[in-house]
Design a protein around this nucleic acid. Structure first.
Lengths: 229, 229
DNA sequence: CGGTGTCTTGAAGTCCGTCAATCCCCGTGG
DNA sequence: CCACGGGGATTGACGGACTTCAAGACACCG
């Protein structure tokens, strides 16, 4: 499907938003849409990936498959996020849709030539890469904590921030974007431990659960304290 | 001290290597050298950092200080590595020298205007950022393993790769760049556990220790197996 | 020779992982 | 409508792995 940028939900936030309408139109002619169902794989591990993508709707996860077959979640991708590595195309990461998602796909060489043509695009991608790096390091700090309670509390706070409109205040009520299995996977814990810690958070009055995935923050300060602990 | 690129040990590998001699000379006029002693801090957490740097000799660590005062190592920086985030200058990371080190320091705005002037520089920094991202995710995968033996084995393999000249074969004999405390910090373990696991690796014949930090790989295949497990 | 810092080794305790049973929610089909 | 079944989530009991606490070994330096 051809790209129609005029109606793109991330046209003001994605990397391509630094281009003017004409430039964007030129780029759009070289890309196309793709819809992914939940669980569908965008880039498979071990394949030589020579394309890249911007996520417009939905959510993706970046995982690595260890030598022993264990999956590990390395990052989440939100709308306007960019996926693609130009310089080492043999990638050992796998990109999987968490929910039904839509991406703008481009061939690597097309984006590279577009960067030559429009230097602002390279700057925008640099910015995205640095943001991704920051997010990755935040996750590293979280996963490195020795206390499981702190990890789970921190993860919930992170999701609350991500679910919020404002960048400084967490959402008070939101849905976890991940299953327990995926939460456990991000933190290097087991499903059971995550479940137990969430239960503990509810028992001590920091949160209230609504349904499987729903979370309501009752005492964010307590949650932050636990995340620090 | 003014920069003298002609004798720079990373002149062929750093981000600025994409510039020609004249361009590099222009950039060099806006930067200066700084020497750091082991343990000295380059950028302190909580400060508004508005400068960036390329490491020419030595080694740095990137750490985050948690709310509870715990330090966590997020990344190591090797010569030719770049440090600096342009887009969110309030950084909660701290950059510390592991050994005596030398850096090329630049003001953020100077680098930004240089990127405008020389688009190749933005491309080069994008490449570095993506490499850093990849390294960060590799560390995340390592730190996320549930088995301490696998983590330590993987860390040693990683250091062996980094110490090697060739990118595909690990060095057979090398020095650990980090103290036990820093190793433990990277993996989210304790000093004692790291020490015990290294001892175990030696007892099972995978490695031999020489002095405090020296490692000799006796059975790299076994080490890789353990790292996978 | 004593002091300090780093590393190692040992013993006891705690937290998390493993295994297993159960529950809950939903969709399916009799 | 209710029974059945499957996937995800919760809960419990137990064992093992790592942490904690403490002591000792080793090198380096005054």
């Amino acid at each position: 499907m051809n790209l129609v940028c005029a109606t793109c939900p991330v046209r003001d936030r994605a990397a391509c938003s630094v281009l003017d309408d004409n430039e964007r139109e030129n780029l759009a002619r070289r890309g196309h849409h793709r819809t992914l169902e939940a669980g569908e794989v965008l880039f498979r591990a071990g394949e030589k990936v020579n394309s890249c993508a911007t996520l417009t709707t939905g959510a993706l996860k970046v995982t690595s498959i260890d030598a022993d077959g264990q999956e590990h979640i390395l990052a989440l991708v939100h709308p306007a996020g960019f996926i693609g590595e130009f310089f080492q195309p043999f990638d050992d990461h796998e990109i999987v849709a968490l929910t039904q998602s839509q991406v703008c796909l481009f061939n690597g060489p097309d984006i590279e030539s577009a960067m030559d043509e429009y230097p602002a695009l390279a700057r925008a991608l640099l910015r995205r890469a640095q943001e991704d790096l920051h997010a990755s390091r935040s996750l590293l700090a979280l996963a490195g904590k020795s206390d499981a309670q702190a990890q789970v509390a921190g993860l919930i706070m992170g999701f609350a921030q991500a679910a919020s409109d404002s960048p400084c205040h967490p959402a008070q009520k939101f849905e976890l974007p991940l299953s327990r299995a995926d939460c456990a996977n991000m933190l290097g814990l087991t499903i059971e431990t995550v479940s137990r810690k969430i239960t503990a958070l509810e028992k001590m009055g920091a949160i209230v659960r609504t349904g499987k995935r729903g979370i309501e923050l009752v005492d964010p300060a307590q949650l932050s304290d636990l995340a620090a602990g």
